[in-house]
Amino acid sequence: MNVFRLTGDLSHLAAIIILLLKIWKSRSCAGISGKSQILFAIVFTTRYLDLLTSFISIYNTSMKVIYIGCAYATVYLIYMKFRATYDGNHDSFRVEFLVVPVGGLAVLVNHDFSFLEILWTFSIYLESVAILPQLFMISKTGEAETITTHYLFCLGLYRALYLLNWIWRFYFESFFDMIAIVAGVVQTVLYCDFFYLYITKVLKGKKLSLPA
């Protein structure tokens, strides 16, 4: 555990909680892509199946349980409790175009051709692109609520901090996981355009809106 890994995890946790609180307090999931949230629930479920097979630490186990629990709670709020506020017409990204290639890639490129390892690999690849339906929705509507941009910033920052963590671990622990690193770079790059808008607009007190 190093400072980048810990702040990355906390940034990830902050993102998840910001989103849950936003939906709960406003009693609305307007502007939130339910499809991205379903993808994140699949990501956590397929990655954390090792909860059943191996124990790493109390920290590790409790964070995994919290992430999974919050992911399903978010999906429940969007598709059940506040379903009436869900903007399905704008959430029109075709997720099969992500899930199918990512599934194929996980079967072809993995560390070990075993059930749990392929699911772990699938979750790493899927996470790297799971935000696309959300970004697509924002580009379609041309705007995002400020609280939604805070969520996206924390979520993007988390993987960027993990990149620093992997550099640290490479130098100080000789740890190197090519699959996680490549997927992590892809994931972080997808947020770059958003980071630019966040810093130049939201942090200066303006609403995030895209030119028509």
């Binding site: 790493i56 390892e117 772990w120 993990y162 996981d177 996680a180």
Partner: peptide, 10 residues
């Protein structure tokens, strides 16, 4: 040495 199949990251 780390066993890469024991994924200790989240």
């Amino acid at each position: 040495e780390y066993n890469i199949y024991e994924h200790d990251e989240l």
